[in-house]
């Protein structure tokens, strides 16, 4: 076990980690940040997506010990400073972009990364970008709407019902 120190959601943190401890386990078990979820064991589902040094990363694919000194942001760090929902979070609520909520943290983190890279994505670009985040509840319809709405675009008429 070694002590691994990083910055998570703007706060300096440290916790013990074995060499094999994945970032997701470091966050969930070491720091008690259980908003980041584990939905698979093959880096396919995207429920564990967090931002590492500003980039979307599946936290089940990286070792905590490799991230000494890294800047990590999780779903717990996504709300506005006053605790209100950020634009992307609010768009998910407004457009019913979540049901059971389990894939949601990863979806929000991936969507936020997409909008940081591409502020006005097309529908196809959103769908392509979120291809690594599986949702079983929504049929993706309202997730895509939420992301397009969060980007400030008019949601396509077909999706608006």
């Amino acid at each position: 076990m070694t002590k691994v120190t990083m910055t998570v959601n703007g706060k300096a943190v440290s916790a013990e980690a074995e060499g094999r401890t994945l970032l997701v386990n470091y966050l969930r078990e070491g720091l008690g940040l259980t908003g980041t979820h584990v939905g698979c064991d093959t880096s396919q589902c995207g429920a564990c997506v967090v931002h590492v040094n500003g980039k979307a990363v599946k936290s089940c694919t990286v070792f905590a010990a490799d991230l000494e000194g890294a800047e990590v942001r999780t779903i717990e760090g996504m709300a506005n400073a006053d605790g209100s929902l950020s634009v992307i979070q609010q768009a998910f609520q407004d457009h019913h972009g979540l049901q059971c909520g389990f894939c949601t943290p990863g979806m929000v983190m991936s969507s936020a990364a997409l909008l940081a890279e591409n502020p006005k994505p097309s529908e196809a670009e959103v769908r392509h970008y979120l291809e690594g985040n599986i949702c079983r509840c929504t049929g993706y319809h309202n997730i895509i709407k939420a992301v397009l709405a969060a980007s400030g675009q008019d949601v396509p008429a077909v999706a608006a019902e």
């Binding site: 996504m78 019913h96 979540l98």
Partner: peptide, 21 residues
Amino acid sequence: SKRREDVRFLTGKGLYTDDVS
């Protein structure tokens, strides 16, 4: 009506079984 449960799910405050310690 917007879903009240969304706020906890969107902020990482949901409590699923594996989150219970």
